[in-house]
Structures are given as structure tokens and as C-alpha cells.
């Protein structure tokens, strides 16, 4: 049976992990490669690297980093942040990334999704959707939720699928950082709207929250950052918990 995936997300700036990662047993918790290895060993199903550097810095640091990560780990990983062209993606894939995630650039230029799917295959194209619920309407947001657009999330998800995206990474800006659980209602509606896998993001605080995202939110994967980085929840413990809740999990 296909299992539900647990995906730690690492924010990267200038080739280093940020967000005060707090691993006592790592020599250098700011080293993305060491963290990636650690997560791989403890049972992460995939990893996501989100590069938040400015464009100029990104060019210099991201590619060598992707290469080092690809050399070190033997599970799939996705790279996102500032990707806006076929050339950007080509370079990342050539250096060992398995998938890429696009967000603002897809909203500004939806044709990019089509081009990427055609050139590299749907399997490596993840479209990240940052969403915020305003007056009962889920709207697509840009710039980490700062900029609202008029796009309806579910219509956009449909378009993204039609254009050939292989997966959607859905982040609820209402839930992100709250540690009060995922936006399960919206997630479930999204799963009914499209027929590609959905990664739930934003709101993980407890193990039950993750279980709820799978059971009520019908998500195919759950992504989280701080609960893993601060070791509030250990992946092996989380996976055992999910398995006890009758979810299909790789142990």
C-alpha cells in the first residue's frame, strides 16, 4: 500500500539552514547536508529545501549545496525558492535535485508549469500554493502570504493540474506558525478538486495534527519544519503513532 509521507522542510539562506535549528547531537546544525543526513537516517520519506536567499546569493550557493545533498542522501528531495525558468530547473536537476517547487513564478506565468512538465516530466514539478482564507474564500497569496491575489485556490489548483503539475504543496497562511493543526477542510476539498497528490503544510504542532491532516484532510504527505528542527516531535515516534492510527506508514 502506498504510504503517507513525512517531509521535513529546511529553509536555506546563503547555503546554510536558518530558523535556529536546534539539534544537540549535530556538530553543525546550520549545515544543510548534515541535517539532511540526520533526517534521512531517522525515517523522513522526502526532504524539501526552500531557498530564501536573494537571487544574487542564490546563484552562488544553491547549486553546490544541491549537489552535496544529492551526493549524501538516498531519498528524494525537492528544491524550491526563486525558480522562474526552464534553465533554473535544468541546472537543479542536473545537480541531483529530484523535484522542484515553484510558487510565485507559476502564478505570474502559468505557462511555466506547462513548459516544465513538458521538458522534465510532471513527476518533478511541484506547485506550491500559499493560501489564505478571507471571508470564507480561499485566495492564492504571494510573497509568503504578504500579497493577496484574486485567484481562487481551488480554481488555481485545477489549472495547475491541467498544466501538468505532478503534485501540490498547499500551505495555509491562516494555520502556518500557529501549531494548532492543518487546514483540514480546505485540504480535503483540494483532494476532491484535483487528482494529483497533495502535501499539507502549515500548522503542525502535535502528532495528532499530522494524523488529522491524513485522516480528515485526506493529504498524501505532511510537511513541517520547526516541530522537527526543535525536536518537539521525533520522526520515528511520529511514524509509530501514525501507524497505530491505522495509517499506511513506512517504518
Amino acid at each position: 500500500m502506498l504510504t503517507k509521507r513525512i517531509i521535513p522542510c529546511l529553509d536555506i539562506k546563503n547555503g546554510r539552514t536558518v530558523k535556529g535549528v536546534n539539534f544537540v547531537d549535530l556538530k553543525d546544525a546550520g549545515d544543510p547536508v548534515e541535517l539532511a543526513k540526520k533526517y534521512t537516517e531517522t525515517g523522513a520519506d522526502e526532504l524539501v529545501f526552500l531557498d530564501i536567499s536573494a537571487t544574487e546569493e542564490r546563484r552562488k550557493t544553491l547549486i553546490p549545496l544541491v549537489r552535496e545533498v544529492a551526493k549524501a542522501i538516498n531519498i528524494p528531495f525537492t528544491v524550491g525558492g526563486g525558480i522562474s525558468s526552464v534553465e533554473d530547473v535544468k541546472l537543479l536537476l542536473q545537480n541531483g535535485a529530484d523535484k522542484i517547487s515553484i510558487n510565485s513564478s507559476a502564478v505570474k506565468n502559468p505557462k511555466l508549469i506547462t513548459e516544465l512538465a513538458k521538458e522534465f516530466g510532471s513527476q518533478c514539478v511541484v506547485v506550491a500554493i500559499d493560501a489564505k482564507e478571507i471571508d470564507g474564500q480561499w485566495k492564492v497569496h504571494l510573497m509568503g502570504g504578504k500579497t493577496a491575489t484574486e485567484r481562487d485556490v481551488f480554481e488555481w489548483a485545477n489549472e495547475v493540474e491541467q498544466r501538468g503539475a505532478g503534485e501540490i504543496l498547499f500551505t495555509s497562511m491562516n494555520n502556518d506558525g500557529t501549531k494548532k493543526g492543518f487546514a483540514n477542510e480546505a485540504l480535503a476539498k483540494l483532494s476532491e478538486t484535483v487528482n494529483i497528490p497533495i502535501i499539507a503544510s502549515g500548522g503542525a504542532g502535535t502528532m495528532q495534527h499530522v494524523a488529522d491532516a491524513f485522516i480528515n484532510g485526506k493529504a498524501d504527505a505532511a510537511l513541517a519544519a520547526s516541530i522537527f528542527h526543535f525536536q518537539e516531535i521525533e520522526i520515528p515516534e511520529l511514524k509509530r503513532f501514525l501507524k497505530l492510527n491505522n495509517l499506511a506508514i513506512r517504518l
Partner: peptide, 13 residues
Amino acid sequence: SNAVKVPQMGWNT
């Protein structure tokens, strides 16, 4: 078929 999510993506036995 569309009875399942396509692509299958992830770990299976």
C-alpha cells in the same frame, strides 16, 4: 485510472 491519485508518488511495498 482516476480512481486513484495519478501519479502514484511515494513509498510502496
